[in-house]
Design a protein around this nucleic acid. Structure first.
Length: 423
DNA sequence: TCTGGGGTCCTAGGACCC
DNA sequence: TCTGGGGTCCTAGGACCC
């Protein structure tokens, strides 16, 4: 049998982070909203029990929120990102190697740990995370990542497991696989689940037993690999080094629709500058920029317009003002009067390390510009976002996303650190 | 009034080459 | 009747994930 892997996953992560600093949120239904306060992207157990679904638009559940006194919070990514560091620090001593898979999930390589009682070991790990961060977690152990995902889901769903499910045992594995729907399997989305259902493949157990050749026709190599994993044959390794990123994006919905070119330029200016900041943070340059904007697709009775412009950038760059110039060009060429634009974004592709950047013929010396960017980064880091901006960003930012009930930056801004009062 | 943001991977098809 | 056979590279779009 292949070496065991585990997945440790934080329960209701964003809500749990908020609860770590606000005891009044414990024991009551809580939801955390997406950017722009649009829909529910995290729910406490109590909120789930009230029937709030992942992604429910908040304006459609107003009645429920009111009737049950559900606490509603805007998302606070600075807090969640910082808490993740603490969670990972607690996990680290328990693992030989690990892969941070998402903001609330970490895969663990337990190769060489087989002599331990891994369930007990995992319970100790959960306890460590809880002690350091108050955040509750579940752990799934299995021979493959896909099975570890299912094990984790089983640990969350079934009290019997007491937070840690080990699917290395064939009998338990079979029992669990027959309990989960095919759409619950990691990598099976709605489209594939529908195709499989038409073939009467409805549970994870059925999917495991599907003929590989048949699977290839339905879901390509992806589904084929997934079935191998369900059978206990690893098709995806634990990636312990962070892979080079392929793209980077800054996109936002607007608090109110934009009908004016200058105002759209204001938003796009901010996104391009922010994209440049992200490039510099990661020590990268980009060779291609895409700018897009569109109307509200949920309002089909209104005039719709959607535009995308992709521009090659030579030389490759991470200079904010250069990115901005490309983005402006794209927006100008695509703009049409008479539409209410509700979302726009800047995306960067062809990323490489800044020090591997190919030099082009007759390239100018960029030292002054590099210093300007470094100075802007410094100002914005020290004094807060958007303190140093190009004039085209404007000062009003009327299109700014809503974020009406964001919690304080308890751990990342000194002025917002909670204080303990002596009595 | 009102529906997120940021990623990855795969596939099909076109352009181009020998 | 009938119009090569590979390759590579690039792009757009779909599907999926958290």
């Amino acid at each position: 049998m292949s070496a065991p892997v585990a997945l440790i996953d934080c329960n209701n992560y964003y809500v749990s982070c908020e609860r770590a600093f606000d005891a009044s949120l414990v024991g009551v239904p809580v939801i955390v909203l997406s950017n722009n306060d649009g829909c529910a992207i995290a729910r406490s157990g109590e909120a789930k029990a009230l029937g709030i679904k992942m992604g429910d638009p908040v304006h459609l559940i107003r009645d429920k929120i009111k009737a049950h006194g559900i606490r509603v919070l805007s998302s606070n990514y600075a807090l969640y990102g910082d808490m993740q560091r603490r969670v990972v620090a607690a996990i680290e001593p328990f693992a030989r190697d690990f892969e941070i898979y998402s903001i609330d999930e970490t895969f663990i390589d337990f190769a060489g740990f087989e002599h331990l009682d891994l369930a007990a070991h995992s319970r100790d790990m959960r306890e460590q995370v809880r002690q350091w961060t108050t955040i509750p977690t579940c752990v799934g152990i299995a021979p493959t990542k896909t099975l570890a995902k299912l094990a984790n889901a089983a640990a969350k769903k079934n009290q019997l497991f007491d937070g840690v499910a080990d699917l290395r045992d064939e009998g338990i594995r079979k029992w669990v696989l027959d309990q989960f729907e095919v759409g619950d399997v990691w990598g099976v989305g709605r489209a594939t689940a529908e195709k499989l259902a038409a073939l009467d493949i409805k549970t994870a157990g059925c999917l495991r037993d599907m003929a590989l050749k048949h699977a290839r026709g339905i879901g390509g190599v992806v589904l084929e690999r997934l079935i191998a994993e369900l059978r206990g044959v690893p098709a995806s390794a634990i990636e312990t080094v962070e892979p080079q990123r392929k793209g980077m994006a800054v996109t936002r919905s607007f608090g109110t629709p934009i009908t004016d070119l200058d105002m759209l330029m204001g938003a796009v200016t901010q996104y391009a500058m922010r994209a440049g900041e992200k490039l510099r943070q990661h020590g990268l340059v980009a060779g291609r920029l895409t700018v897009f904007f569109h109307t509200n697709r949920h309002k089909q009775d209104r005039p719709q317009y959607s535009a995308t412009r992709t521009l090659g950038m030579q030389p490759m760059t991470n200079d904010g003002l250069t990115l901005l110039a490309y983005a402006r060009r794209g927006v100008e060429s695509a703009w049409r009067n008479g539409y209410g634009i509700t979302k726009a974004g800047v995306m960067l592709e062809d990323l490489i390390d800044a020090d591997k950047r190919p030099l082009t013929l007759f390239e100018e010396n960029n030292e002054r510009r590099d210093r300007l960017m470094a100075a802007m980064d410094e100002v914005n880091n020290r004094f807060g976002k958007f303190k140093a901006v190009p004039a085209s960003q404007g000062f009003k930012r009327e299109w700014k996303a809503r974020s009406d009930s964001r919690s304080p930056n308890y751990t990342t801004r000194i002025a917002e650190v909670p204080s303990v009062k002596a009595r």
